[in-house]
């Protein structure tokens, strides 16, 4: 599944389903399990329907009546503000970026005796 049509066309996977939603919502809107299920079922239907290599199924869903999310998609993705200022990109930090501080404590505890086998390339 993809929400970045130009990138998908460039990479050219065997099959794709395109959902025209903002980045970060490739498989639906948050907390809408029924809509997510309908969407994913529709996307998986591409396995039956698409017959030509490189074909893309367009999912007929609209994010909202308001189309302003398209105006500065990259700036919004990186800053949350929608307004780029100089190099607005997030710094490319080289240390793990945990969602919660407690995650780091837990990860360090889990790995105190060595690798866990599920963090491949990070141990």
């Amino acid at each position: 599944m993809t929400s970045a049509l130009s990138i998908t066309r460039s990479v050219a996977p065997p099959r794709a389903a395109f959902l025209d939603f903002p980045l970060g919502h490739t498989t639906g809107k948050k907390n809408q399990p029924e809509a997510q299920k309908r969407l994913l079922k529709n996307a998986l239907g591409a396995f039956d329907e698409l017959q030509r290599p490189g074909e893309i199924k367009f999912l007929n869903e609209r994010w909202s009546d308001d189309e302003t999310w398209r105006e500065k998609p990259m700036a919004k993705a990186e800053t949350g503000s929608g307004e780029p200022k100089g190099d607005f990109r997030t710094p490319r930090l080289e240390t793990p970026q945990y969602q919660y501080p407690a995650d780091q404590t837990e990860a360090e505890h889990q790995h105190r005796n060595g690798g866990c086998g599920s963090c491949v390339g990070a141990e």
């Binding site: 903002p22 980045l23 970060g24 919502h25 490739t26 498989t27 639906g28 809107k29 948050k30 907390n31 399990p33 997510q36 299920k37 994913l40 919004k76 993705a77 990186e78 949350g80 990109r89 997030t90 710094p91 490319r92 930090l93 793990p96 970026q97 945990y98 969602q99 919660y100 995650d103």
Partner: peptide
């Protein structure tokens, strides 16, 4: 958990199914 530098992760942190549809596949 979700962490990423190139998209707004706030919705994914609220409901990971928007980028990792494990719960949706289960359904």
């Amino acid at each position: 958990r979700v962490t990423h530098f190139a998209y707004d992760v706030s919705d994914a942190r609220t409901d990971p199914n928007v980028v990792f549809p494990l719960g949706t596949l289960r359904a």
